[in-house]
Amino acid sequence: MKDKAVVTGKLALTFEKRREKTRLVDCFQAPPLKASRTLYSEGDDQATVYLVETSGGLVAGDLNEYEIKLKEGARVCLIPQSATKVYPSYNEQTSKQKIMITLDKHTFLEWNKEEIIPFEQAKYEGSTLVRMEDTSTFLFAEIIYPGREKRGESFRYRMLSTQLQIWVEDSCWVYDPLKIFPEKMQIEKIGLLEGFMYIASVWVITPKLEWTENQLQALLPSEDKNHVVGVTNLKNNGLLVRWLSSNLPRIKKEIEQIFKKVKERI
């Protein structure tokens, strides 16, 4: 049976700076996706919005779409209220999520954290496309779970596919595809997951920093046999920090620390 995914949820948000604050000027919501009201920290012009998925997760054949647009000068933090849970596929159809982001000049977007939990027998395909100006800033974090490990479902899903593209002006800075088929791949081997449980990534694209080798090394947390992390410099105006780990609380804490360190320098 071929996939016949339909849009079961859509959330389209447009932000614009007005009267010294970032405002949510357009919001289209189709269940089960919703957005919270815009929140502000005291004295801050940045808009914080929580992304809500009211159905509890993606069922086989579902497609959720996000369209995020920031107009010139807008500053936004998006926070998923819960992880993306992917339910079993007993009908051979794939659960899909599509994110499209457009960042105009001098904008700032932080998306923290996109957590993906594929259940036993789940099939998931996710894609994120970012188109941004060279004066804008993008921070993105993602954690891929092995499944519901406390229920003995680690790597019992059928397929997981993610793809991130980041275009700065007309140049593709990031093309990062990942596909895992636990039943067909020896994921514990060198070059794959090597016995680790979680894959996590932080992407930072900003024109305001040039990363020296010492500054990159200062971002890196300590490692041990159950937790390894590496950093890659992207054209001096961006970086990737990636984890292979079996310690989920430690990953989350270190992602928060890296976001904090980066934002202090921007």
Rank of each mutant, 00 (worst) to 15 (best):
V6F: 11
V262N: 12
S41F: 10
R242F: 05
E53P: 02
E72Q: 12
V130C: 00
S41D: 13
D45W: 06
E20A: 10
T8D: 03
K150G: 00
N64W: 13
G195L: 01
E183N: 08
F119C: 01
L160P: 10
W173E: 11
E72V: 02
W111K: 05
E194K: 06
Q257E: 13
K2L: 09
L244E: 08
E213M: 11
V231A: 13
K179N: 01
A30M: 06
F28T: 05
S154V: 06
N112D: 09
A218N: 08
S201A: 00
D26L: 07
W203H: 13
E16T: 01
K208L: 15
R131M: 05
V6I: 12
N247M: 08
Q29I: 11
S41W: 04
V76I: 06
K2C: 02
E114P: 01
L109D: 00
Y87G: 12
F138H: 05
L63D: 09
G152N: 01
L129D: 14
P118L: 00
L160G: 03
V25A: 00
Q217L: 15
F28W: 12
A5S: 15
Y50H: 12
S127H: 12
Y90N: 11
I68H: 13
V174G: 10
Y87F: 15
Y175V: 10
D170Q: 11
T48H: 15
L234D: 06
I255Y: 03
Y50M: 14
E72F: 11
Y198L: 04
Q257V: 10
